[in-house]
Each structure stands twice: as C-alpha cells, then as structure tokens.
Design a binder for these strands. Structure first.
Length: 800
RNA sequence: GCCGGGGUGUUGGAAUGGCAGACAAUGGGGACUUAAAAUCCCCCGCUCGUAAGAGCGUGAGGGUUCAACUCCCUCCCCCGGCACCA
C-alpha cells in the first residue's frame, strides 16, 4: 500500500512551526483578539485520548481564527501541584518537584507531536514559585478583605489521603480522588468566603448564554438557593421560642408536632426536672453515637421521644407536642422542624410510628379530599389549601407566598433565603502545594506574611510520607521564623492550599506570564480577557468553573479587571469511550495516542476524533474509523499527485458551497459535518476534476484539521507563504445560485414526483407544470384541488 | 422527587417545520491483478414485489399544520447533577 509519508512530514512541520514562532501572540489594539483556552492538564506524564480530544477541538478553532485574521491567544501550561505527584514521589523515592518536571517534559513532547498551535512562550506551571507567589498574594488580599479566614468546624476528611476536602471534592460521600469514604473531623482550617459572592454567582449565570444548559443547571443546583420561612413557635408556659425553618410554609396549618435535633441546646432546658428527663437523656446519648449516615439513611427506622413539653403553632394557636428525634440534624436549618405528617413523608412515617396526630391541609386535584387515617403516604405534590383558615381554596403555590408575607407582617415568621453553597475549605495537610502565607506569634497572634517577603518558598525537601499530618510542620527551617511585628520566635502555617486555588486564575496569568508586579498585568488582561472560548471536561462543571468565577468577581471588586465573568463561551467536550465504557487504567481499555500517532500520524488521529462525533457528545473509539480517516487523507494526497483540469465547473460550484458550509460549521463547532463536507468536496473532484484554485481551497480548509499534511501539500504546490498564515477562503454567493433546481412535488404531503426547472421560474408556471405532471395523474385525477402550496425553489404540495 | 440532556438504519452519526438516514464504518457487487492487498466505480432502512412501484418507518400515544425527527400535551426508557436540606 502506498501511503503518504506522515512521519517525516509531521516532524518537519513541528520543527518549522517552533523555529518560526508560528503561534506566538502579542497584544495589539489594532487587531481583533480571540482568546482560546483549553483546560490545562495535570502533568501525569502521558496524554490520554481525553486530552487529545479536548486539545484538538481547541486547535481547530485556534488555527481557524488565525486564518480569519484574528490575533489569537492560545496558551498552554500545567496544573502542576497536587497529591498524585506527591504519592508518585513517595512510591519512587524521589521529590515531587523532580518528578513533576520530568512529567511536564514528557507531556510537552507528546503535545507537540499532535501539532497543536500553542504559544509555548507563555507556558506556566503552577508549582513554580514565580506562579504560586501570586497565589499567596491573592490569598493575602482575600485575608485583608476578610474573605480568607480560619475557623474550627466539622470538616470532610479523607482517611486515605490524610487531608481535608472541600464540599465540592466529596462525590457520593467519597473522596473525589480515591473514593474512600469521607469522615467528619473537628479541625481548625482555612476557608475562602465564596458565600460572600453567592448572589452574584447565581445572578450572573444568566449572562452566560453561551454556556451549556447542563453546566448552568449544575451550578444553580450547587448554589442551591431556596426560599423559605423561619417560624417562631412559643414554648407553652415559658418565655422562649423555638425557631424552625421550612420551605413548605403552605403546610403550616397541618403542623401537628415539632421535632428538635437531639443536640439542640433547648432540649436540656425543656426536660429539666420533668418526668421525661431521664428517658430523654438516655435517648440523646444513644443518638450521639450514631453516624450521620445512619441517622439520615432512608431505610433505618426513625427513632424519637416525647420531651414532655408543648409549643404553640403561631398561625392557629394550637398546642403541639415537642419531640426529640434522630432524623433531625443540628446542621440543617435551625435544628428544629415543624412536622406536617400529611405532606412530608419523613414526618408521616414518624407520626405513624409514634401515633401522632395528622391533618390534611392540601387537597390533591386528582385524589380529592381524603381523611388522614386513609393515607398510606404523605402527599407532597401541589393542590388546593384546606383547613388553612383564610387561605382555604387557594392553590398552594399561591398560598405559600401569601402565608409567608402574612406571617412576616404579623411578626410570627421571617422570610429567609437558604443556600446550599458553603465556604470553600482550602487547607490541605499535604506537601506538594502552595504554602499558606501566615505566621503565628504567641504575643501578636495570627499575622499575614508581608507582601515584600513573598514568595514563601516551599522547601525543596520535606519528610512527606502521606501519613501523620502536614509534612511542612516537620521542616524546622521552614516552621521557625521571627515574628514580623515583635521579632520573638514565631512559627509558620504548615498547611498548603488546595490546588483548585492555583487553577482559579491561571487564565489571567497567561495574559502576562512573566509579569512581576502583580498576578497579571491589568493592561494585558484588559486586552485579552475574557476568554472567548473555553473548552474542557464536564467533570469541572462545578469545582473549577465555580471557583474561577468567584476569583474573577473578587478581582473585579479589587478593580483589577472590569468584567465579572471570565469565560464567555464554554464547550464541554464529551468523553472518549471504548466498548461503551470510559477509557481508564482500572478498566484496562486505554488506547495510547502515541501508538496511533506512530501507526497513522497525528493528522489522522485529529481527523478521526473530530469526525466520529460532535464535540460535546460521547465518542466511541473505533479503530476502523481511524482507518477511514487515514484513507481519506491518502485520497487527498493522490488527488494532489494527479489532478486533471477537466470540466471543472461542477467542482468549482461545489467549492463555493463547501467554503460556506465548512466556515459556518467550524464557527459553530460542528467539526464532524465540516469534515463530511470536505469529503463530499473530494468526491466531486474525483468525478469532475479540479484546477489549482479548487485544490488550494480544499487544502486550506483541511489545514485546521490536518495541519502538517496541509502544510506539506501547500508547499509542494509551490506556495512560499505558510498555510497557517494563509487567509481563509471566502465564497461567492453568486456561485451558490443554481440555474436549475429540483422541485419536490407532494400530494397531501407525500412525495409523488420530482421535476427539474430553471430556478427563476415564476410561481404560476411552476403550479401549472406541477399539476400537469404525468406521475401525479393516478393521485389527483378526478379530484378537486383544495389548496396548492408552493415553497420557492423547494417544493409544491397539492392538497386534494 | 426536582433540575438538565438524550432516544433516528447493522454501527458512528446528518437533517433554518419542506425528499428522513448526508458523510463515514460494516456488508454486497464490479473493474484492475496470475492472486491477494491497496485503489477506482456501483449498491446497501424494513415489508411486499422479478420489476415498475406501493405500504411502513425517527422511544409510545395524542394534538397543531398543506407538511412534524423538528412545535405543543401525556407517558415510557437511558445518561448526568442535586436530594430524609425540613
């Protein structure tokens, strides 16, 4: 088989692009900028198909924008801090820094083999002190503003990684990295007050019209804003109230008892001296030994005990018993609930178990009025208010608002907004991360490191073992400092920052990667930002994208940027599957991109991965598809070797059509159909021949997809200028106008005939022709024509 | 349960409300070849039919329309996010 010499060609052009600094970008206010960014990788040492897909999608867009005359910023770097490097270093008895640098070098080689058009002069690695210095700088600014703070609380703890985790890093109750079940631990830790931006984070989602719906939905879910009412239940015979929180204030008239969490501080006061005291205390002790998981598990029976006290429902002054139960948790809401057994399934089960009263207050439009005794489960749906005083007869959704407003006015409740979002825990008890720039002095307390003293360098060596707390705490030279205020011996903070801190602003650093005064040069950022197109995996839909949005809003408040959202458009590419499953080491179904490059070349791999599915959809790996892409490139290669200038009118027309389609498709990231159009174009050229112009346009349009291949043919055709600098072709709209068009003729919407007519034929004439069509005779003969619809240049529908 | 995205040939996937299945993969046939591979050309949704052709067909059922994969309603299934959050 004679195949084109892809190996030589690819090596040749990769070297030339590098030598010519082909894709280095410079801010230029005269030129329209385009900032194209793909999520930078963690330097594992090897690229996988997910990277190949992500970066190929970006590369096509980048090359296309260059050719359209944009000033393109297309940088690449490495998210280089993090646990895997530390674990690998432990395993291989080396230093994470050494290991990481090696990985970066290997990875760069692989990325270069793919022919990606990066501006390598802007490369950054987050593990360099020239980068993490600015993490510390940002942290200190946040500290000044009260947005970085330390507090003791119950935190997520991964016992395998021996470190804390942010809420966003807990997936299905397990560590996002190693899936070990996460425990709760009481620790004093550093937090970032992301909740200070919750309203904006939610509000600004509406600006992000070019983000995928599902990402917006996931972020909205995560922020979790819910409207509710805090209701005050007076305790009978006492001058105290119990606040409860509800999102279903429409069911308040059905609240027949209230429940306190076992840990609720009021419990002990309520039972003091009562006959119930001993029993309740015993119950509390029992509950305190149960884990949260058991208490909130759906299949474990809810246990509880009557406190002996009563409260008064403020809407109807009804006395209701106060219970203590395990299914109510102190962490949620106020640690106390109003129980509406008819309209909340948890309360229903509890009430049945303990023989508590029930009252229906919302009538289902389907089932109608039912007595509580007949209920087999709570009705949690919508309906009409009953037994609800002046609100009877209202739809519950309406009543919800009215009741809330009425209660607030009467001073018996307060409308409240609850959020799911919690502050971001950033302390990690690991070595390979940015040191938190804080000093503790026995006299002066907690002090920030002075800006002039940044960076706080991560010591080159530390006794990291993955066990036994922060490794930095064991490095004496690191820990022991003198207090910057009073000069007595003091010690440094020894936790490091979560690595998501590093990646929350790297897109800004790329604008001015060597800038030495601040994290980024404001003027450069003003020119390049926001990112016009961001591309990455859906797995970052919450974590990284939410944190980056938060940082951007913070920079805006500091006056460092003048925009609130960092990423204008977002594309989340689908995963690469093999045999219907995600490619992963543990499944053993990985296809190594390097082997494919060796066998077929990078251009073939790029072409296949773009052709096999639209970017945002899952892609099933198919070796035969690779063959197909390879065959296509060879077919184009032979075309160049032997094209004949025959009667090329047909090919020329097709050329203009193809330019239109490919241009529009690339703009809309529909690369699979863009490639399909190019294949059609080649098929037409095989039939009808081509001249220089036609071949040139084909090669140019192919170049974002298969850049080495196209560059080579372009040169062989005698062009001096590189193809990556060539102007993207434009089509002539006149060439798209057909002289004759095929008209579909339908009878009652079914295709019965087709005719070719001059495209400028008058409508009346067309109608006449259509009605006279021989093929239609059996269908319309003897039947009156009721209606005749003509869609110009497309079809005629005869309604009979 | 709530929110979001999907469901089209043997397969990956195409179709501003206007010829369903572009382009490819698989399969079949032909040309070239001593032969094979490669290459070039042709065919390829299902049913009936020698054929011409007809009927059916985009998860199911309704609706709107001259015309529905596309818009509306009800339902089923798959994927993802959130969830005993009061």
């Amino acid at each position: 088989m004679s195949v084109y010499p892809f190996k030589e060609i690819e090596e040749k052009w990769q070297a030339l692009w590098q030598k010519e600094r082909a894709f280095s970008a410079r801010a230029d206010s005269q030129k329209k900028k385009y900032y194209l960014l793909e999520m930078f990788p963690y330097p594992s040492g090897k690229i996988h198909m997910g990277h190949v897909r992500n970066y190929t999608i970006g590369d096509v867009a980048s090359r296309f924008k260059w050719m359209q005359g944009y000033n393109v910023l297309h940088p690449m770097g490495f998210d280089a801090f993090g646990q895997p490097a530390e674990n690998a270093a432990i395993k291989n008895k080396t230093q994470p820094g050494i290991w990481t640098h090696k990985c970066i070098e290997w990875m760069k080689i692989e990325l270069k083999k793919m022919g990606f058009s990066y501006d390598w002069e802007r490369e950054v690695s987050t593990c360099e002190s020239s980068y993490y210095k600015w993490n510390q700088w940002i942290f200190l600014r946040m500290f000044e503003k009260g947005l970085a703070y330390k507090k003791a609380s119950s935190v997520n703890w991964c016992p395998a990684c021996e470190t804390t985790l942010a809420n966003e890093e807990v997936v299905d109750g397990g560590c996002w990295r190693c899936h070990t079940e996460v425990e709760q631990k009481d620790l004093e830790q550093w937090y970032l007050k992301i909740t200070g931006y919750k309203e904006q984070l939610l509000e600004d989602l509406r600006q992000l019209t070019n983000w995928p719906q599902r990402v917006l939905a996931m972020q909205e879910n995560w922020l979790g804003k819910s409207l509710g009412v805090e209701i005050y239940f007076r305790i009978k015979g006492q001058d105290k109230t119990i606040p409860v929180f509800t999102t279903r204030v429409d069911t308040i008239f059905g609240a027949t008892y209230i429940v306190l969490a076992a840990e609720h501080p009021l419990v002990k006061e309520l039972i003091g001296g009562s006959s119930q005291e001993k029993k309740v205390l015993k119950f509390i002790e029992k509950v305190s030994k149960e884990s949260k998981a058991v208490r909130t598990s759906a299949d474990v029976k809810k246990e509880g005990i009557f406190s002996g006290a009563f409260a008064v429902n403020p809407v109807n002054n009804e006395e209701v018993p106060i219970w203590v139960a395990d299914y109510v948790l102190m962490e949620y809401g106020t640690g106390a609930i109003m129980a509406v057994p008819t309209h909340d399934q948890r309360d229903f089960l509890f009430a049945k178990e303990h023989g508590l009263p029930m009252r229906v207050v919302i009538e289902s439009p389907v089932a109608g009025r039912r007595s509580p005794e007949k209920l087999t489960e709570a009705y949690e749906g919508d309906g009409i208010q009953v037994n609800s005083g002046q609100f009877d007869g209202l739809p519950n959704k309406e009543a919800k608002v009215k009741i809330a407003e009425w209660m607030e006015k009467a001073g018996i409740g307060k409308i409240q907004t609850h959020w799911r979002l919690r502050d971001w825990l950033i302390s990690r008890q690991r070595y390979w991360g940015t040191p938190i720039p804080i000093i503790y002095c026995e006299k002066c307390g907690m002090l920030p490191v002075a800006y002039a003293d940044l960076p706080v360098e991560l010591p080159k060596e530390a006794p990291f073992t993955g066990k036994g707390g922060s490794p930095l705490a064991k490095v004496k030279e690191f820990v022991h400092v003198t207090c910057p205020k009073c000069s007595v011996p003091a010690r440094r903070e020894t936790d490091t920052m979560a690595t998501f801190f590093d990646s929350s602003w790297y897109f800004l650093r790329f604008c001015s990667p060597q800038f030495a005064d601040e994290p980024f040069d404001r003027r450069e950022a003003k020119y390049w930002m926001p990112v016009d197109q961001y591309i990455g995996g859906i797995e970052h839909a919450i974590l990284h994208l939410l944190y980056s949005r938060f940082f951007t809003k913070f920079f805006k408040d500091l006056g460092m940027v003048d925009f609130a959202e960092p990423f204008k458009r977002l594309l989340t590419q689908g995963m690469v599957l093999k045999d219907g499953e995600v490619m992963s080491k543990s499944r053993g179904n990985i296809v190594d991109p390097d082997l494919i490059i060796k066998k077929y070349g990078a251009d073939t791999l790029r072409l296949f991965i773009l052709f096999a599915a639209p970017p945002e959809m899952e892609l099933e790996w198919d070796e035969r598809g690779i063959e197909g892409a390879f065959k296509f490139l060879n077919r184009v290669w032979r075309l160049y070797e032997s094209h004949e200038p025959e009667d090329v009118m047909k090919s020329r027309k097709k050329m203009h059509e193809t330019i239109k389609e490919v241009t529009e498709d690339i703009e809309n990231f529909k690369f699979n159909t863009a490639i399909a159009s190019l294949m059609e174009f080649v098929n037409v050229i095989y039939q009808s021949g081509a001249d220089e112009e036609i071949i040139s346009s084909l090669i140019i349009m192919l170049s974002p997809f298969a850049p080495h291949f196209s560059e080579e043919l372009w040169e062989r055709m005698g062009n001096k200028e590189r193809i990556y600098k060539t102007k993207w072709p434009e089509y002539d709209p006149k060439m798209l106008i057909e002289e004759t068009v095929t008209i579909i003729i339908q009878v009652n919407g079914k295709v019965r005939s087709k005719i070719d007519i001059p495209s400028d034929m008058a409508e009346d004439k067309l109608k006449e022709l259509a009605l006279a069509d021989e093929k239609l005779r059996p269908w319309i003969q003897g039947k009156p024509v009721k209606n005749l619809i003509v869609v110009p240049r497309k079809l005629v529908n005869i309604v009979i």
